[in-house]
Simulated scan of single mutants.
Amino acid sequence: MWLVRTAAIGGRLLLLAVLVWLLAGLAVKLTLLLVTVAVALLLAGVAAPLVGWAHGRGVPRWVAAGGAVLLLLAALVGATVGLGARIADQLPQLRDQFQSVASDLSQRFGIQLPGAGSSSGGGSGTSQGGSSGGGTSAGDFLGPAQTAAEVLIGIFLTFALAFLFLTSGPGMWTWLLGKFGGRVREDVDAAGRAAWTTVGGYVRGLTIVAVFDAVGIGVGLLLLGVPLALVLAALQFLASYIPTIGAFVAGALAVVVAYGSGGLGTAALVLALVVVVQQVGNDVIEPYVMKNRLPLNAAMVLVAVTAGGLLWGIAGALLFVPLAAAMSAAAHEVWVRHGSPPVAGG
């Protein structure tokens, strides 16, 4: 009897594994569409309280939604243009810092890093490229043009969907709930609202934490006289949206730049600055602003970031944590409604 049960359970697990594999393959093929929908939902979740506040004071919903979307688009364009111009202006200095650090580590500790001695080998590489690359084919432009087109299409779809979610979201949700009945409809409604509240609160809270980290580290870098302080602060802000890994990478980059410009003492001070600011942000600011809106422990956050990065790259690393938090909040709500709270408090 136990053999029959084991075979049945094994068959179901195998079927589930095949289904997950097929869904993962489909997700990879539909990356652009799924990413745009997910980002649009996140933006709508962030702007929903503002739209609701304006609509409650007599502003038509479509006007409030349009204003919120335009405000988000202006912030994105302004940040991209401003940060891109500053990075482009200071990129040679940043490259020199990395080459200096790589050469210094190579001489002191025998660690060979990319960039060490690149200045000496750059001339030969250029001459070889000049002799071998006499012409440029159409294929050299096709890849960048296709990528640029996908980015523009993705941005357009994201903000268009965010506007539709903000204006017609309640109607869409009512239509979806109409496909269910009885207790199932109530469960779906409660789970969806719990997921929506969790995602919106998480993104807004994470933005506050990212601003705190960027301002704290940026001011400290300016006081220590580290070059590229504003660029490093901006990168810290952006990287903070990738939990755990993003903050670590941005902090390590600041330490490397400090080491290249001021030596080991400055690097040690910057390392202490990064650790203190990020710990205050994670242990004091984050619990206060998020108010337990992230129903995931540190291990699950790391797994979600890694899985998202492997599946969708940087976009997946950004999106998988709020998506996992939404699913966890929805499941928790259903469990509680059925009188079966999760083991160990969720």
Rank of each mutant, 00 (worst) to 15 (best):
Leu142Met: 11
Trp53Thr: 06
Gly178Cys: 00
Leu23Pro: 04
Trp175Gly: 04
Ala331Phe: 14
Ala17Trp: 07
Phe98Tyr: 05
Thr136Met: 06
Arg337Asn: 07
Gln128Ile: 09
Thr158Gly: 03
Ala27Ser: 14
Gly182Glu: 03
Thr147Lys: 07
Leu19Trp: 06
Gly192Gln: 01
Leu223Thr: 12
Gly66Met: 00
Leu230Thr: 14
Gly345Leu: 03
Val277Gln: 10
Ala254His: 05
Gly265His: 10
Gly313Ala: 08
Trp175Asp: 08
Leu222Met: 14
Gly143Ser: 11
Ala191Arg: 02
Asp283Thr: 13
Val215Tyr: 04
Leu33Arg: 08
Ala54Pro: 01
Gly308Gln: 04
Pro92Gln: 07
Arg86Val: 12
Ser119Glu: 15
Gly11Arg: 01
Val255Ala: 15
Gly265Phe: 10
Arg337Gln: 13
Thr167His: 03
Leu16His: 03
Val336Ser: 14
Val231Arg: 02
Gln112Ile: 11
Val211Ile: 14
Tyr241Asp: 04
Ser328Thr: 14
Ala329Met: 00
Gly263Arg: 02
Glu333Ala: 15
Gly345Ala: 09
Asp96His: 11
Ala68Phe: 07
Glu333Leu: 00
Ala307Trp: 07
Gly139Thr: 09
Val59Lys: 05
Leu26Glu: 10
Ser340Asp: 09
Ile245Thr: 08
Leu294Asp: 10
Trp335Cys: 10
Ala330Gln: 04
Gly133Asp: 09
Asp104Trp: 00
Leu19Glu: 11
Trp2Tyr: 11
Lys179Ser: 13
Thr6Glu: 14
Ala194Cys: 01
Ala47Cys: 10
Leu230Val: 15
Val37Lys: 00
Asn282Val: 04
Leu26Asp: 13
Gly154Glu: 07
Ala317Arg: 05
Val18Gly: 13
Phe141Trp: 06
Ala44Gly: 14
